[in-house]
Design a protein around this nucleic acid. Structure first.
Lengths: 227, 227
DNA sequence: CTACTCTGCCCGTACGTGCGGTCAGTTCAC
DNA sequence: GTGAACTGACCGCACGTACGGGCAGAGTAG
């Protein structure tokens, strides 16, 4: 019925990635519970058994999606922190990067954001959870440093990080990567409101939020697709 | 095995609300897809058939949960807007109310927030979607008014409302109503960062964010449990 | 080169289970 | 009687996954 694109046995370890990508897209579109092996297999013209062969269980597959996503995010974050030093630029970079990902890799991003809650309780998600926590700790540290330096007004850094991540993680429910609204505009507006809210002066806010400014350019370089 | 609390046929029209409350809690804990009639029925010591008798389908049940939730939120919102007139107080009120709900009615709130995405596509959710949109429109209008009055610095009101709702709606993934952190503290910190980010002066920010201030008191009165 | 074995990728099928929803029938209030 | 509340048995299906086998290519002995 469905002819395989590649001759069987011919693919050099390649099917695995295809499966993961398709599965990721289905999770993004329908959520984990409604995503199923049958549909993924049909779409790729293969058998359900193949998926099981490569990944074992559905849980493991989701865990791998989450871990891959967070690994890249963490790598980016460290590079960004090494290139930018001012606290307000660092925070702006996290925001720009967070928004940017929604357009660069919408499927992976949405799949991750929809199913983050599974990181907290589900077993087998320890690695991904640790990665997520490490990422948030980076942001909290920047907030604390900025506070110590007098760049940010005093406040609860942890709550502020959650407020910030909330805005970004919620994007999957309303943002359309193919829509009219450019992601840059979202990033700029989010940056402005957030940085001003942290007590950063208007000049620094404008520079850090600018889609064509140094921070956004730095993020664009670091977060190039297929890093 | 499980003895019914009330003799069958004896309940005076009351079981329906019990069912909805239990279902809501299950949705909050596990998500809609994993919540099922069997567990709800067992917990209430009744048959699955009873649930079907009252609600028809699972979809309808979720729709009713969403509609009830949004109806109360909208009623509150209108009262709050009638009692508070300053834009920064109105925005602060929305934040205080949003956070407050997480502790007053955690199950309903989480159930709603987890499954908001179904409002966008799923059929049968038109009413709830309209309510949600109406609610957001109220906030957008306040943001625009405040901008026109010069209380808020110019910016994209729609994006700002989404930034704000993101922070609040994401709470279900990390906030524990029974935990150490008081909801008031969250509301206060969120208010401060947001209002400052909108360009409100420090004095007005402090007053509007204060958990014991006039705005928070007004919200506490309006959003009393079992309104 | 030939013949063989081994191995990893992949297929198709079948099984078990869990769940949403149906239905005929009973009980009880009015 | 009438109708609403409720029951318990049952259906059909969707889905995760276990299993047995097929097939191509690499390695290896002769």
């Amino acid at each position: 019925m469905t002819e395989p694109v590649v001759a069987p046995g011919r693919a050099r370890g390649g099917r695995r990635d295809e499966i993961l990508a398709t599965f990721t897209r289905h999770v993004a579109e329908r959520g984990y519970d409604r995503a199923n092996f049958g549909d993924v297999a049909t779409e790729l013209g293969m058998s359900k058994g193949t998926i099981v062969h490569h990944f074992g269980t559905k849980d493991r597959m989701l865990a791998e999606v989450q871990e891959r996503y967070m690994r890249r995010r963490l790598e980016e974050a460290h590079v960004l922190l090494s290139r930018l030093t001012a606290p307000e630029q660092r925070i702006a970079a996290f925001v720009h990067a967070g928004v940017r990902y929604s357009t660069e890799e919408p499927a992976t991003t949405v799949a991750f954001q929809r199913e983050v809650v599974r990181l907290t309780d589900e077993p087998g998600m320890e690695t991904a959870r640790a990665q997520r926590d490490a990422y948030r700790d980076l942001v909290v540290a920047v907030l604390r440093d900025g506070e110590a330096d007098g760049v940010f007004v005093p406040g609860d850094a942890r709550l502020r990080s959650l407020q910030m991540f909330g805005s970004l993680h919620w994007m999957w429910t309303w943002f359309d990567p193919a829509g009219r609204l450019p992601a840059q505009d979202v990033a700029a507006e989010f940056c402005r409101t957030l940085l001003r809210g942290l007590g950063v002066g208007e000049v620094a806010v404008a520079a850090a939020a600018d889609p064509d400014g140094p921070v956004a350019r730095c993020v664009a370089e670091v977060c190039a697709p297929r890093g």
